[in-house]
Design a protein around this nucleic acid. Structure first.
Length: 870
RNA sequence: GGGCGAUUAACUCAGUUGGUUCAGAGUGCCUCCCUUACAAGGAGGAAGUCGGGGGUUCGAGUCCCUCAUUGCCCACCA
């Protein structure tokens, strides 16, 4: 059989994914094993896979695959989120392209289009995840607007309402006038922009004097209901009780006093527009001011403004400034930098606006959610996010959950007689409730609230609702899978989503939704910019997979992503991942190509096996340790080095028979055993490659995906230490050859003068093989005319007939000698320091003593060698 | 403005309660090698005043203070 020299990922990845699916390895149902559960952070149903998803889902898959091998009943629930505002925006855009306006459609017609869009695009991202190798239980795929999940959402709304935790009220909210909906505080992004600060003067009615105010939003003067100054401000002391006239509209408003006003800013006089500014709104409440809402939902000016009715607010800004200037009200224009809120979804400028909305009271829900994170019942990785979390949870405001959209869960409130309403699951139930309030009501009088719920109002139930734990709180599945084990997500949505899931968990299951939260970094490009569509700096994950293989990309992602750190992505890392695939592939080719005979086992092989056995055990422990601390990159790096350095560069090089020779069956069997263990350790990172080789090594029925995770037995440290000496000797000899240009094919002889008591010669055959030594001779005397070096106070000599550069040798030795002397001095100083010997632990002092002894011995050798050369 | 981090080799990062020869890893770089698994490779090598300054300690990448640079979160100046 001839095996390709280069590993071809493309060829095999699809094959194994289908195979695993067919064998049902991803499928889970409750049984008597312990469960290990992850719910996917549901990507937007209309989204496509980006690098953030790649990272996220690779980590989840690694955890799931390892848990599966450890014997847990693993369940990774996939699904998508309806993403109400994002999806609705896309559907609207698509309709616009066809010349259809949303406003021309009925709600039902619009939703038909939206569902059609969902059917067409909804599956894409999940199909992409399969290419990555994600071992999700696809039979459980959920969508936040599935019937059962939708019902759960409505049940929860009603329950919270009945508990008094949901209320309706007029509040200042963030208004997105493109999407024409309220958005939550978290969906507003503040950006610094260059603005103009307009100084405008208002006439004071009683005195005919002027007062000058400063504003960046001159169009809002149409909604002014007061001018406010600081009571301490001497400039405005005599204005108490006076009024002024708004320019152009000529409306009269009072002058009020409040310490809120910053005397330093602008002119120290503030125009107050309670309907369109959060601070003004609060001032308005405090001073009983009217609110005049001058904005329509689409951002145009309404008739309450009296002027410019029907024009867009930004157009009005230009016009009003021109008009104010013409009439002498504009004093000056200043350039300033200020921060303006933009909608995360539509990037339009957010207008603060008074509006009737639904809210969830957060205070009570927060309590257990905060406590159980702070006391580590729920663990955050990395820990630093606990601080951020606490900060947010202690400053949280009520959650505005209504959105003026159609795509989403419609609010189950039914209105009659204007503002009266009842909350119920169906219109019939609502009717029954309404009858209690008003005897002669008819069902036609009830109108359901037009608004839908914030997307996060469904996603906060995700870990419960995917197991139907809301509608059926004690069903077998929820009891078995909940709480889930790990949540892997981006820190960006810590508050939107993670915090709220924790709240919902304690409110509805009296328990945490997950035990651990692994927060990944943000994927950035080489320049450190966040990867985004608009910048066009994000590589297409699928073409990366085509190029480097899913295994290669998985490794590439993980090579640079310690938990919580941003991830500077560079395609070269995927290349490294691919090269690693190839390395393993070729190690396999070597093993597969060996000729096995029933011959005597060489001593070098026997020693290599002894060593590698211990090395492997040591690394298994280390890898497990890394996993337990959620240091996934570290676990990968340990695996990488174990395979590349220890297994390939050392072990296989020793075990490999010389040209034309055969391997003994004992060594061969051991090698296969090690390869199998290595592949198991590798499987979570490189599932496809490991499965492929697993089956190519020998005929077998079992699959690596469900093979048992390697167990570590006790490590004999001394063996590892002995091997370290051996490897240092080998490297030094190789270095000597390189320097003196002695070919590796030419044998050299090695003399050893042992100065240490516990010297182990067992591994000499390894040195002989790897350094191509003719023989190792032990000597009591130094060897003249030889290249010499010291390893662990033992002296090694390679007789050398060429001209040794004496001066250079002496220089080299002197350099080393100086270093050792300096080192000895610092150690001795330490030991002479009584404070050190008295205070430091005995073990530390003993180590220092040993250091001093070793240093002395080495100094003696070096000194002698230098003298000999002279 | 408030809060939380970060700063260690050219790059990306480890460095776990202060104490082994502790200054590390991977990549990159340099030198030699197409040697009978692998040039997507092998062997060897160079490279850092641990951001600056001060302090605590017998002992400081590690703890404290301060400055500088930088990232993120929250609030927000009309």
């Amino acid at each position: 059989m001839s095996i390709a020299k280069k590993y071809d990922a493309k060829k095999i990845e699809a094959k194994w994914y289908q195979y695993w699916l067919k064998k049902g390895y991803f499928y889970s149902e409750p049984d008597d094993r312990e469960s290990y559960t992850i719910v996917i952070p549901p990507p937007n149903v209309t989204g496509v896979l980006h690098m953030g998803h790649m990272l996220n889902n690779t980590i989840q898959d690694i955890m799931i695959r390892k848990a599966r091998m450890e014997g847990y009943n693993t369940c990774w629930v996939p699904g998508t989120d309806h993403a109400s505002i994002a999806t609705e925006a896309k559907v609207v855009e698509r309709l616009n392209k066809k010349g259809i306006k949303k406003t021309d459609l009925s709600r039902e017609e619009f939703l038909k289009h939206a569902w059609k869009w969902k059917e067409e695009h909804g599956g894409i991202i999940l199909e992409q995840l399969k290419k990555l190798g994600a071992s999700c239980d696809w039979k459980r795929t959920k969508f936040t607007m599935d019937k059962d999940l939708s019902e759960s959402v409505i049940d929860i709304f009603i329950d919270l309402y009945n508990k008094g935790l949901i209320y309706r009220g007029i509040r200042m909210i963030n208004w997105d006038s493109v999407a024409r909906t309220a958005v939550s505080d978290e969906e507003v992004i503040h950006k610094e922009v260059n603005s103009k600060l307009f100084h405008l003067r208002y006439k004071i009615k009683e005195t005919n004097d002027w007062i000058t105010i400063a504003t960046t939003r001159p169009e809002t003067i149409l909604g002014d209901t007061a001018i406010c100054v600081n009571p301490k401000d001497k400039r405005y002391k005599n204005l108490k009780g006076k009024h002024c006239i708004i320019p152009l509209v000529e409306r009269e408003i009072p002058i009020i006093y409040d310490e809120y006003v910053d005397m330093e800013f602008g002119t120290g006089a503030l125009k107050v527009t309670p309907a369109h500014d959060i601070n003004d709104y609060e001032l308005g409440n405090k001073h009983n001011l009217n609110s005049i809402d001058i904005l329509n939902d689409d951002g145009t000016i309404n008739e309450k403004a009296k002027l410019y009715v029907g024009l867009d607010r930004f157009e009005v800004r230009k016009k009003i400034i021109a008009d104010l200037q013409a009439k002498g009200y504009l004093i000056k224009i200043e350039s300033i930098k200020n921060k303006v809120g933009f909608s995360e979804r539509t990037d339009s400028i957010i207008e603060p606006k008074l509006s009737m909305q639904w809210f969830v009271k957060m205070e009570k829900l927060c309590e257990p959610a905060l406590e159980n994170v702070m006391n580590d019942n729920i663990n955050f990785y990395p820990k630093k996010f606990k601080n951020t979390y606490r900060h947010w949870m202690t400053n949280i405001k009520d959650w505005c959950i209504s959105r003026q959209l159609w795509w989403g869960h419609r609010i189950p409130a039914y209105f009659y007689e204007g503002n009266k309403y009842v909350v119920a699951k169906t219109k019939d139930e609502a009717f029954e409730l309404a009858k209690k309030q008003k005897k002669n009501i008819s069902i036609e009088d009830l109108h359901q609230d037009e608004d839908v719920l914030d997307t996060w109002f469904s996603s906060w139930l995700w870990p419960i609702s995917v197991f139907d734990g809301i509608r059926n709180p004690n069903n077998k599945e929820i009891n078995y899978y909940y709480p889930t084990n790990d949540l892997v997500t981006a820190p960006e949505i810590l508050f939107f989503w993670v915090a709220r899931m924790i709240m919902a968990g304690y409110e509805y299951k009296k328990d945490m939704p997950f035990k651990n939260v692994y927060l990944t970094g943000i994927v950035r490009d080489k320049e450190g910019r966040k990867m985004s569509k608009s910048l066009g700096n994000s590589p297409d994950p699928i073409s990366l997979i085509d190029k480097y293989g899913a295994d290669g990309v998985r490794v590439g992602m993980l090579l640079c992503s310690p938990a919580g750190n941003d991830l500077p992505f560079d395609e070269i890392l995927c290349e490294q991942g691919r090269n690693f695939s190839n390395k393993i592939w070729n190690a396999f080719r070597l093993i597969k190509g060996l000729d096995i005979r029933d011959c005597t086992q060489p001593e070098s092989a026997r020693q290599a096996i002894l060593w590698f056995e211990n090395k492997l055990n040591q690394q298994i422990e280390e890898i497990n340790e890394s996993y337990s601390k959620y240091r996934i990159s570290e676990a990968l790096m340990s695996t990488y080095k174990l395979i590349w350095d220890d297994f390939c560069s050392w072990y296989l090089e020793i075990i490999k028979p010389n040209y034309g020779e055969s391997i003994d069956s004992t060594s061969y069997d051991k090698t296969i055993e090690y390869l199998e263990n290595i592949l198991k350790l590798l499987h979570p990172f490189m599932p496809f490659l490991s499965e492929e080789i697993w089956h190519l090594i020998k005929e077998r029925q079992d699959d690596i995906i469900v093979a048992s995770w390697p167990k570590a037995s006790k490590v004999k440290e001394i063996v590892l230490e002995d091997f370290d000496i051996v490897s240092e000797v080998v490297s030094t000899v190789r270095n000597f050859r390189l320097q003196k240009q002695i070919s590796n094919k030419e044998q050299v002889s090695l003399f050893v003068k042992v100065n240490k008591n516990d010297f182990c010669k067992d591994m000499d055959p390894i040195i002989i093989k790897l350094a191509n030594i003719s023989s190792i001779n032990y000597t009591k005397e130094k060897i003249k005319d030889a290249f010499s070096f010291i390893v662990q106070s033992n002296e090694y000599f390679i007789p050398f007939e060429g001209n040794l550069n004496i001066e250079e040798e002496i220089k080299k030795l002197n350099k080393e000698l100086d270093y050792m002397k300096g080192f000895l001095k610092s150690v001795e100083n330490k030991l002479l320091n009584k404070k050190f010997t008295d205070n430091a632990p005995k073990a530390v002092v003993d180590i220092e003593k040993k250091k001093a002894e070793d240093a002395k011995a080495k100094i003696e050798i070096l000194t002698n060698n230098i003298n000999d050369l002279k």
